[in-house]
């Protein structure tokens, strides 16, 4: 097994640099995505595209908390501000490395093209599907009113 893993890793390394090309070959160009999606030069590095510096502001934390739908106490906001800033600093350290010639890693597995045939299989009984629903109405999940989009 250990041998296999090593083989996989070797294969993956070989593959990452050959069959999985860096951004350009993956069809990425600056014109590809509309304005709001514009790349910074480091799309998948942590913090890319965000405007904050390495030290997060209180507002940054509240913004992220809102996106995650988390309600934080003032004390938690302060704590998170410190902890999240530390994490970003770690990445800033990594960022000093010259990765110009290293293709981005999107996947840590060596596999590609794992597909399924288009053949239906039975779904779950509706009672199982709704088993964990906080609220149920008939065969529907019920939630608080959400605005019509």
């Amino acid at each position: 097994m250990a041998g296999d893993n090593k083989g996989d890793r070797a294969k993956q390394n070989g593959r990452t640099s050959s069959t999985i090309p860096p951004r350009a070959a993956a069809g990425v160009s600056d014109g590809l995505l509309d304005e709001g999606y514009a790349w910074t030069d480091a799309p998948h590095r942590p913090g890319a595209g965000y405007t904050w510096s390495m030290s997060l502001t209180r507002d940054d934390v509240l913004h992220v908390a809102r996106l995650a739908r988390l309600g934080l106490t003032d004390e938690e906001v302060e704590r998170m501000q410190g902890q999240l800033s530390l994490i970003l600093e770690q990445f800033e350290t990594l960022r000093r490395l010259d990765t110009e010639q290293v293709p981005p890693t999107f996947q840590v597995f060596a596999t590609t093209n794992v597909f399924r045939d288009d053949e239906p299989r039975p779904s779950f009984p509706v009672d199982d599907v709704l088993q964990n629903a906080p609220l149920r109405e008939g065969d529907y999940l019920r939630v608080r009113a959400v605005l019509e989009e």
């Binding site: 399924r116 288009d118 053949e119 239906p120 299989r121 779904s123 779950f124 509706v126 599907v129 709704l130 008939g138 065969d139 529907y140 999940l141």
Partner: peptide, 20 residues
């Protein structure tokens, strides 16, 4: 079938939450 699982994609006439 659906995009990432083998549930039937024919949702239109299916009873609610039956292809899940």
């Amino acid at each position: 079938t659906k995009m990432f699982c083998s549930c039937s994609a024919a949702y239109a006439d299916a009873p609610p939450n039956s292809t899940v």
